[in-house]
Design a binder for these strands. Structure first.
Lengths: 119, 119
DNA sequence: CTGTATCCATTTGGATACTG
DNA sequence: CAGTATCCAAATGGATACAG
């Protein structure tokens, strides 16, 4: 996630970066399918550290895109789901992901052509 | 741009990251309007270093999303424009950007509510 | 199980100087 | 003008250990 947030950045660009961040996109797409527990998301996304997933989910929750439901049981159980706002964002992200899937072959051809003309 | 590309990453996730990268999104949206010269893009995007803009444009060109037209004149003149493939991607990115614009107020309310319940 | 804290490697990205 | 090269600071992000 481009989570720098340091300083003077246009606020809407910030939302955009949360939504389009590496783990943000994958979390939103996974949650579009159904709610997930923390560990389910980790498995489904694959190769994401606990730290980054927690950080990503907190940011998305703060932006009002993800709802966090922590149940006071032992062992702890936390379910994540999309809010209405989050669903709108997730659908667009999923569409973009589907586009890259559809056009992947064309991109790979372009890369080969590009590389062929260079050292 | 999450331009790491280091290693074993699913190739379609890679395309996605180029398209959704910080400078990638802004370049695509600017080019959707009309072709731009390098320095025009720099001004329009704002606060992007020459290095990052050049890197971003090269990546998008390699992926077949951006067309680079370098004219052999002095002083050098290079025009960047979208390919058909790039236009498809750019339109989706622009839609997502418009969404964040429309929903910015809702996100900011969510943030305030979130922050209000915390130290 | 769901996190947080710490440490550390890698990556990003800006500033500057320079070239064709 | 349109970059490339270099250097360096800052941010990202993984591994590990630990806590509630």
């Amino acid at each position: 996630m481009a989570m720098a947030e340091s300083e003077a950045m246009c606020p809407e660009r910030l939302v955009m970066e949360h939504v389009t961040s590496r783990w943000g996109t994958l979390a939103l797409i996974a949650l579009l399918d159904r709610p997930h527990r923390f560990s389910e998301l980790r498995r489904e996304i694959g190769r994401v550290s606990e730290k980054m997933l927690a950080q990503t989910l907190r940011t998305l929750e703060r932006d009002g895109l993800v709802h966090r439901d922590a149940r006071p049981v032992i062992p702890p159980r936390v379910d994540y789901s999309l809010t209405d706002l989050g669903r709108e964002a997730a659908e667009q992200v999923r569409d973009l992901a589907r586009w890259t899937e559809r056009r992947l072959a064309a991109v790979e051809r372009a890369r080969e052509a590009y590389d062929a003309t260079r050292p």
